[in-house]
């Protein structure tokens, strides 16, 4: 797979990152190396092999629908970068 500057900017944008020109070049190099590495996989014969969705081999881990402990409001307040009138405050979105 080919990676160009445009792809790097697209991926950075999706990840909410702003990269300088040098960083973009650096990322391009690193991502290319990763993709090259992944290409090794395509050399394998994967005919009839189901895609893996989980690596540990567990399934059906569930819990009972019973209410447990939640944070005290004061703890939540401490976590919030900005807090006002019982709410997290964020830059306006609309």
């Amino acid at each position: 797979m080919k990676i160009d500057k445009k792809t790097i900017q697209w991926v950075a944008d999706l990840a909410n990152l702003s990269l300088g020109e040098e960083e973009e070049l650096e990322m391009e190099k690193q991502l290319l190396a990763i993709l090259d590495y992944m290409d090794i996989l395509s050399e394998l014969d994967l005919e009839g092999v189901e895609p893996t969705s989980h690596t540990l081999g567990y399934k059906n881990v569930t819990r009972e629908d019973r209410v447990g402990e939640s944070f005290e409001i004061n703890e939540v307040k401490k976590i919030a970068p900005k807090w006002e009138r019982g709410h997290f405050v964020v830059p306006r979105v609309v």
Binding site: K82, R85, F88, V89, V90, P91, R92, V94
Partner: peptide
């Protein structure tokens, strides 16, 4: 999300 009455104000999250 709840938006401040002031259109320049912030948004609040519950």
């Amino acid at each position: 999300l709840i938006h401040d009455e002031n259109p320049k104000g912030p948004s609040f999250v519950d």
